[in-house]
């Protein structure tokens, strides 16, 4: 998983619902050149990699005639700019092509994997929020106490423990020894709700550790800065209960950067989590794209990367919108 990073607050000349709409439109327009450049990069970079997709696929059984036929069929003999234009033309008509390896349409593969990736990312995000924010708040309130140090240590290990190791340990404990959770696999939520949730508990948790740690650290620092504000001192001076001050006054304000950060982290999660998917045998985007890169399955890599890029851009726009929605000052300017 890659880090999200902070962003500048969107500048708005006119505030209110109109402004939100305008912001969305402007963001979408800005996203278009990004997508075009990105598509060129994905297309070009893959072709810079050594290795031929057809030879890779055929390996032990390569038959020169078949290799030549497939090269023609997938237009691999055409100059790269022509290949690119042909691909873009098809994508604009909603056709992402089909996998060289399995023959399955890329659109179908994406649609099969999208709900899985969304569910895994959502589970991980929910867990990360449930762990990260309370831990951050407690660490801030109990600054420089044992509780704070402990929370920091846990956060640090959350970021540094390898998912692979944690995943295997969880499988050994919960699936092999105690037999209370399935060791791996994905069950569609529509097929069996509880089993689906159960099968996602461990992968969701493993994936959430780093995100939770990240959120905890940011919540802590946001809370610390809010807790030292004048209005908190005023609230305390009014004799409000400590919990009320922390939750109603401090946390609500501290949450603003956290919400945008979470949205961006969620975008990251949607791009797939290769290791977690591999350990828990979850057929999400991460495994799909890594396999496709290794087998030089161009159409799949292009389709999935483009799709996740669109998802990531959408998450960015959502982050901007949420920022306005949860921050009343941006809606009602003076």
């Amino acid at each position: 998983m890659t880090g999200g990073g902070f962003r500048c607050r969107p500048s708005l000349s006119k505030k209110g619902p109109d402004a939100v709409l305008k912001l969305i439109v402007r963001r979408i327009l800005l996203a278009l050149p990004t997508l075009i450049i990105l598509s060129m990069i994905i297309f070009g970079l893959q072709r810079l990699l050594p290795g031929d997709p057809i030879q890779t696929m055929m390996a032990e059984e390569s038959d020169p005639q078949v290799v030549e036929f497939l090269r023609e069929k997938y237009r691999l003999n055409d100059p790269i700019p022509l290949q690119y234009l042909a691909w873009v033309g098809n994508v604009l008509q909603g056709d992402f092509g089909s996998s060289l390896r399995t023959g399955l349409p890329v659109t179908q593969m994406i649609l099969q994997k999208l709900p899985i990736t969304v569910q895994l990312a959502s589970m991980a995000m929910i867990m990360a929020l449930l762990i990260g924010i309370p831990a951050g708040v407690i660490a801030a309130v109990r600054k420089n106490t044992m509780v704070d140090y402990a929370a920091n240590a846990v956060a640090l290990s959350g970021m540094s423990v390898p998912n692979f190791w944690l995943g295997i340990i969880l499988i050994m404990v919960f699936a092999v020894s105690w037999k209370i959770l399935p060791a791996s696999g994905y069950v569609p939520i529509t097929l069996d709700f509880w089993l689906s949730i159960k099968s996602m508990l461990m992968p969701g948790f493993v994936l959430s550790t780093a995100v939770a740690a990240y959120l905890m650290r940011h919540t802590r620092s946001a809370m610390l800065s809010v807790l030292s504000s004048d209005y908190i001192r005023t609230a305390r001076a009014k004799g409000l209960l400590s919990n009320a001050v922390i939750i109603r006054h401090a946390l609500r304000n501290a949450l603003m950067p956290i919400v945008t950060l979470s949205t961006l982290l969620f975008g990251d999660l949607l791009a797939g989590a290769v290791l977690t998917e591999q350990i828990f045998v979850i057929p999400g985007f991460g495994k799909l794209i890594v396999d496709a890169v290794f087998t030089r399955d161009y159409a799949v890599v292009q389709g999935v990367v483009l799709f996740t890029a669109i998802g990531f851009i959408a998450m960015n726009i959502l982050a901007d919108v949420l920022y306005i929605v949860i921050n009343p000052r941006l809606r009602h300017p003076q």
Binding site: I168, I171, P182, G185, I279
Partner: peptide
Amino acid sequence: YRPIPDTTVRLANLQSGD
């Protein structure tokens, strides 16, 4: 048939009865 590339994960799934 389930593709599970990692040998440790394959074995853990067998041990768990999955």
